[in-house]
């Protein structure tokens, strides 16, 4: 998994690419969770356009990120998911937990 942080008007945009599996948990915690666990009024934007594959561990990490953001009173936007990632987000009904953007 590769993570790229891009500062924007609404806050830092986190672009995740590659595969989001258990092996990426340390990097996810170090970068993504750290960004989510910041005070702020704006939702955290996760750009998944470059993400090719995700398994249940990756989905579990996204759920933990959501919990951490909620503690800060923030939401998470998942943007640009495609292919297997988009389908698994649909099957998992993530649209009921996250804001999904094309």
């Amino acid at each position: 998994m590769q993570v790229k942080l891009t500062p924007g008007l609404g806050g830092v945009e986190v672009a995740v690419s590659g595969t989001l599996t258990f092996d990426a948990h340390a990097a996810f915690r170090q970068v993504v969770m750290a960004q989510v666990d910041q005070p702020g009024a704006q939702p955290v934007l996760l750009d998944l356009a470059g993400l090719d594959y995700i398994d249940s561990a990756g989905l579990g990490m996204l759920l933990l990120a959501r919990e951490a953001a909620e503690k800060r009173g923030r939401g998470i936007i998942l943007r640009g998911a495609r292919g297997q990632v988009a389908r698994i987000l649909t099957v998992s009904k993530f649209n009921q937990l996250f804001t999904i953007q094309p």
């Binding site: 561990a57 579990g60 099957v91 009904k93």
Partner: peptide, 20 residues
């Protein structure tokens, strides 16, 4: 199927909590 997926995800999330 949705129930199974939900339980799998809950289990995965709890496992990741334990891992962290």
């Amino acid at each position: 199927l949705g129930g199974v997926v939900e339980r799998v995800l809950d289990m995965s999330k709890q496992a990741m909590v334990m891992v962290y």
